[in-house]
Simulated assay, not measured.
Amino acid sequence: MSAQATGPETLGSLSDEPEINDPNSKQAKEISGKSPMQIAFGRLRRDKIAITCAIVVLFFLVVAVFADLIAKAFGVTLDTVTACEVLECNFAEPGVGYPKSGPPFYPFDPEHPFGIAPRTGADNLAHWIYGCRTSLMIAGAATLFASVVGIVIGLVAGFAGGVVDRILSFIIDFFLTIPFLLAALTISPIIIDRFGTSDSYETIQIGSLILILSMFGWMTVARLIRGEVLSLREREFIHAARVLGMPTRRILFRELLPNLTAPIVISISLMLPAFVAAEAGLAFLGIGVTGSASWGQTIANAVPYWSNYPLYLWEPLIGVVALVLALNLLGDAVRDAFDPKTRR
C-alpha cells in the first residue's frame, strides 16, 4: 500500500471549515485568501457563547463610558445627602439606619431603582454605575501598561539571548516570587500616609492601584512572549532580515511583533478579568479605591446588612460576577479561536 502524500499544515486546515478536495473550487479559494486573523474572527462569530459574552461585556463598557448620561437619565447622583432625609433616624424605632422608602421594608421606589444604602443614604444605582466605570478604567489601564511592559521585555529577552536574557529572566522570576496581596498591603498604607491629606488623593489612589496591578501583572506576558520569540528568531525570515542588515528595532517591531498577535490577544483577554476581580477584592479589603465609587467597597459596606437587606449586597456582587465571568469565557473563546489545537 502506497503512503498518501500530505501537504503542509496551515492555519486554514485547522479551522472549522469542511475539508475541500478540489483546490480550484470557489470555497477553497475563499479560505486560501483569508488571513489568520480573519479565520480566527470567523470562528468567534460562529461561537454562540463568545457572542453572548461579547454582548455582556459591551453592555458594561457602555455603562462605564456613558456613566454620567445614564445616571442623569435615571435621576440618580453620587452627591451626599443628609442621612435623616432618606433614612429612619428615630432611635426609638427598630429600623434605625434603613431607608424610609424602597427595600428592604417598603415597596419599590422609582426614584431609587436599586434602593438606598443604609447608614449613608447613598443611591445604590449611582454607585453601581460609577463602580462599573471605576473597575473597567482601572483594569483596562493596568492591562494596557502590563501588556506593553511584558511585550517589550519578552521581545528583548527572547531576541537578545545570552546575558541580557538571563538578567531579564531573573527579574521576571524575582517579581513572580513576590506575593501580590502582601505587596499591596505594604504599599497601600505608605500611600495613605504620604498623600492622605492631598486634594488629589482620589486620583493618586487610582493611579497607585493601576501601578500596583501593572507591576505584578506583566511577568506572565513577558514569559509567554519570550518563549514565542525564542522559537521565531531561528526562522528563515528573521535570518534573512539580519543578512539584509535590518536594524534590530525594525526586526522586533516589524517582523516579530506581527507574528505574536495571537498570544498577545490571548494574554490580554485573560488578564483583564483577573484585574477586575483584583480591583474589587482590594477595595473590599479597604486597600483599593476608597475615595470614589467601587463595587468592592460597596460589597464591604453591605456585608453587615446581609440578613435584613440582601439586595444591597447582591447588586454589586452580581455586577462583579457577571463581568468577570463574561470576560473569562470570552477570553477562553479567543484562545480557542486563535489556537485551534487547544480547542476543547
Rank of each mutant, 00 (worst) to 15 (best):
S2A: 13
A3W: 10
Q4V: 06
A5F: 05
P8M: 14
E9Q: 08
T10R: 09
T10G: 09
T10F: 03
G12L: 08
L14I: 01
L14K: 11
K26N: 08
A28S: 13
K29E: 06
E30T: 03
I31R: 04
S32A: 15
S32E: 15
G33P: 02
P36S: 02
Q38E: 07
R46M: 09
F60S: 11
V63L: 07
F66Y: 07
A67N: 12
L69T: 03
V76R: 02
T82M: 11
T82D: 11
V86F: 12
P94F: 10
G95N: 15
G97I: 12
Y98S: 10
K100S: 13
S101L: 11
G102I: 05
G102Y: 12
P103D: 02
Y106R: 09
G121C: 09
A122P: 05
D123F: 09
N124K: 06
L125K: 13
A126M: 10
L136P: 14
L136W: 07
I138C: 09
G140T: 11
A141P: 12
G150N: 15
L155H: 14
V156A: 07
F159T: 04
G161L: 00
V164D: 12
R166V: 10
L168Q: 03
I172N: 01
L176C: 08
L182V: 10
A183L: 15
A183H: 07
A184D: 07
S188H: 13
I190D: 02
I190Y: 11
I191A: 09
R194F: 10
R194C: 01
R194G: 05
G196D: 06
G196F: 13
T197R: 14
D199K: 08
D199H: 14
S200R: 10
G207W: 06
F216E: 00
W218R: 01
R223M: 02
L224K: 03
L224W: 01
I225A: 01
E228P: 03
E228I: 00
L230C: 00
L232Y: 06
F237R: 02
A240N: 09
P247C: 11
R250M: 13
L252Q: 10
E255L: 04
L257H: 09
N259S: 09
L260Y: 11
T261W: 03
S267H: 07
L270Y: 05
M271Y: 00
M271C: 03
M271V: 06
L272D: 04
F275Y: 13
V276D: 03
A277G: 14
G281F: 06
L282S: 01
A283D: 05
S292P: 05
G296F: 07
G296Q: 02
Q297C: 07
Y305M: 12
S307L: 01
Y309G: 13
G319V: 01
V320P: 07
A326L: 04
L327P: 06
T342E: 03
T342N: 15
R344W: 10
